[in-house]
Design a protein around this nucleic acid. Structure first.
Lengths: 140, 140
DNA sequence: CCTTTTTTCATACTTTCGGGTGATGCGAGA
DNA sequence: TCTCGCATCACCCGAAAGTATGAAAAAAGG
């Protein structure tokens, strides 16, 4: 998660620097303003494309017998190992207490995990969370 | 987590402001032109984002376009049309009240349907019911 | 070693679920 | 006609789920 943010920050900064540099050059060389604007347009189109790609791209997963959760999705959402475990058991239709018993946890802890899970998945109910998780290929 | 993101956003904004400030001081640009270029940049970033999104986005959950619920399963379980509708909305993660609103029903009725649904599906919770329904190919 | 994150547990409170137990109207079939 | 399944609606009540807030130990990372 942190890495993703830092990566975005760095690339953003790099882009700005390139822009500064380009601007200076074009001004000094006194080239057509239109060219400069065109350059800006192309540059930011590329940048936007990259952002859009980054935001939505998920590796295509084939129907493999053993399900492999989408790690990048888990990462960008910041879902921890324990939370994922809880999520799986929620998807099995277990109650919080049953999950607590299964994972040797206090029911409070399970509620903690599920609460943060709902926030991260932007869900308000376990059924919704499960649906989203399946869409994001976090659950099989 | 959230703090990190907010911090990132603030520092990003600060960076941009500083850049603006420095630019006006050292390059003495035309204000109108500057705004225009900024506008172009934002516009094409948005455009690029849209392009990137369009390029890479595909339905995350690809179940066959024409999903046909297993009629025989529905039949043997004795699940009625209305119950099936409720079941689908439950799987969407809606609450009973939301389902009631969507189907123009009283919340009581929704509870009636879901109750008999749970009996027929041999489930005690909605998450469990959804899981079973998917196993039985009643839901897509 | 120090900081951050994760995991753990807790209390108090509100909302949602689900069971139990009804009732009414309606259409299909014995 | 009378039963039976379906759909609709209702009340009560306990259980389960979820929110808000806080805190502290354990693990991880630099």
């Amino acid at each position: 998660m942190r890495k993703t943010i830092i990566l975005y920050g760095i690339s953003m900064a790099a882009l700005l620097i390139v822009l500064r540099f380009a601007e200076y050059h074009f001004l000094v060389l006194n080239l057509a303003e239109d060219l400069y604007i065109g350059f800006i347009a192309v540059l930011f189109t590329l940048f936007g494309t990259w952002v859009g790609w980054k935001l939505t791209h998920r590796p295509l997963l084939k129907h493999s017998p053993e399900f492999h959760p989408d790690v990048s999705a888990l990462d960008t959402l910041g879902i921890s190992k324990r939370e994922h475990e809880v999520l799986e058991l929620i998807a099995q239709g277990l109650t919080n207490d049953e999950i607590a018993e299964k994972l040797f946890l206090s029911p409070h802890t399970v509620k903690s995990h599920s609460s943060s899970l709902f926030q991260k998945l932007n869900a308000r109910r376990r059924t919704e969370a499960v649906k989203r998780a399946k869409e994001l290929r976090i659950l099989g």
